[in-house]
Design a protein around this nucleic acid. Structure first.
Lengths: 232, 232
DNA sequence: CGACGAATTGAGTTCACTCAACTGGGGTGG
DNA sequence: CCACCCCAGTTGAGTGAACTCAATTCGTCG
């Protein structure tokens, strides 16, 4: 591992709070790897061999049941994924696939568990990471159970707009197909939902979204910090 | 706090792995309280002042949006709830209400965070607790996104039957209204789903369920360990 | 006995999925 | 360079799933 890379890594929230020895120990067994788009990193049901952290690029987490499949989340830097399976030494509940070409840090799961037992700072960082993940899924569950598909889309747009600087004009970060799965609807339903949003002055030009009447969209969306804000 | 109570408490998964001093420290600020049914312990949006652990009884976690409301989970002993908000010192995302009269251990959230920083064993236990919670919600999200309401009910019955000893005959642990919310459907839909299950030889007599043709139910349910099993 | 709420049942509507046809852009190979 | 194909996306039509509103039954508790 190169020195600059190492510096980048120890700045990750996960490692920033642990003792230098712990970081050394963890990084001895670790490696960073680049993956092209569409690489499968994990498949649900497999044993958790590594903890993954995204250094750049993005990862799609998905799950399948019978002949159905859905997207659970999309992860970007500097976040980790499938930590829970590592902490508990269990099976992955989700499959992870590279969406945008990614640089990934991989830590052997046994080292992670060992480091937790020996370093309260690291264990705390893992707990905080898990807590964040928990809250994100819990919010997503509320989103699914309490909102219609049109509301979910409207709120996703509101949220995405804030995230990209509030310019009321932005580009979808991934295919509509995947967005539909993320929002829990069939692609056709997403398409129709976008069509409906034209009434609210939301203009869609392929992957570019322009929100002309922000108030109208927000009124439809009824954003709720307890569902939509990541750090509340 | 009485000695016998103390013994019961330090056997909780959360405290079993921490140093004696940490347990002492945590229990100094802690207290155990009995609550009657329907008591509201937390409301979503409030600051996280306590970590709660269920010693007996059961707790319903719910969330609201506009005029809608749903049940996120039902928690029994010896589990904790709303740990994530405590770990991160944020707002509760869920409301907690006593379902069956309960004895609850309450730990001041600042003590919890302090104890984590000083005791790797405790921090690890918290991380494991969080990891479990994460996996449960993630499974619930998959359940919601990948299954129809009839499938969710069928799988809930299969799971509940196993949990109660596999006698193919058991009593619903709470009102159908709440079960409906837990499963993500309107009460009327649950009622009709039960009616449909008569075709699969599932008999419902008020709160008592009798599964006469286990194979038929299981074939309908298609249980999946990655959605339905709590410790896989 | 009456009041209340849980649960069921009916009827109508809305929401969301499926299947199918069509469009348009990007890439490949002739 | 162009023809072709493939896939994402859209649109249409029909079906099925789930919600709402309303009426009724039943058990529980004052």
């Amino acid at each position: 591992m190169r020195a600059e890379e190492r510096e980048e890594i120890v700045r990750l929230p996960l490692l920033a709070a642990c003792r230098p020895e712990t970081a050394d120990f963890l990084l001895r067994g670790a490696f960073v790897q680049r993956f092209p788009a569409h690489t499968n990193l994990t498949r649900e049901g497999e044993k958790a061999d590594f903890l993954y952290a995204v250094l750049s690029g993005s990862i799609e987490l998905s799950a399948a049941y019978l002949d159905r499949e859905t997207t659970i989340a999309v992860i970007g830097a500097p976040h980790t994924f499938i930590v829970a399976a590592v902490v508990l030494d269990r099976l992955y509940l989700q499959s992870a696939r590279v969406m945008e070409p990614a640089r990934i840090l991989m830590l052997p799961s046994e080292s992670v568990r060992q480091a937790m037992r020996g370093d309260a700072g690291f264990a705390t960082a893992i707990a905080e990471e898990m807590a964040n993940s928990y809250r994100n899924v819990a919010q997503e569950l509320k989103n699914q159970k309490l909102r219609t598909s049109l509301e979910r889309l409207a709120n996703w747009l509101v949220h995405r707009d804030k995230e990209t600087g509030g310019g009321h004009r932005f580009v979808l970060p991934y295919e509509k197909k995947i967005l539909a799965a993320r929002l829990g609807m069939a692609p056709e339903v997403l398409s129709r939902a976008f069509a409906t949003l034209a009434q609210y002055d939301v203009h869609v030009d392929s992957a570019t979204i322009i929100v002309k009447d922000w108030k109208a969209l927000e009124k439809l969306a009824h954003p709720d910090p307890l569902i939509d804000d990541e750090t509340i």
